[in-house]
Amino acid sequence: MRPGTLKQILLITDGCSNHGENPIAMAALAKEQGITVNVIGVMENDVIDEYGMREIEGIASQGGGVSQVVYAQSLSQTVQMVTRKAMTQTLQGVVNQELKQILGSEVTMENLPPDKRGEVLEVVDELNETVNLEILILVDTSLSMKHKLPTVKEALLDLSLSLNARTGNNQFSLFVFPGKRKDVEKLLDWTPKLESLTTVFNKLTPRGMTPTGPAIKEAIKHFGKKRSLKGLLSGDHDEEFYEESI
């Protein structure tokens, strides 16, 4: 199996959306296009309210991803863990699909004998290390997030440290919502170096609304933009393979 490209949206928020499209529906739309949506809920001393919690879980499960709610101080480790976990989840899905095609509809990794399972997992580990990753980070910059933003910045730098230790290539892009005039604002276009976010991040001014749905919608479009540009240069057949199999 040749490594293709995994696509992920990483949403960092502290509560409910209150503007625009339904974010859970938008997550479903992302998944249909082979993009996994992961959500990290940041809370602080207090607990996130029930409704916000349900939305966070809903977005991730609809988006085929992983969700986790944490205190701001343990954000760094969670961000990288959630990302890696979602990658493994997607790759296992791909491998299971292959297994079904080879061994019949009932076979997944879980019901192979332990020895065989170990061998299959080595394939997943190998893919995890070498697969290319496109990750679009969506940061909620509504007013309540204001003093959590420095921690978010730290966590994202830490994420790039973890991911850049892999052999596979990484492409990062960063969007914040709400933006200056629009619902969503692009801070960083596709780049292998997430470190460049340090300067843009310090200039952020938090604003009122939380348009989570429109933000996801815009993020999906941005994946498309990249692909069409790249597609002009070289045909990416591998990507299609992953999209089908998720």
Binding site: A60, V66, S67, Q68
Partner: peptide, 8 residues
């Protein structure tokens, strides 16, 4: 410290 159990 991780509070949620959505998938764990």
């Amino acid at each position: 410290m991780i509070m949620m159990k959505s998938f764990t």
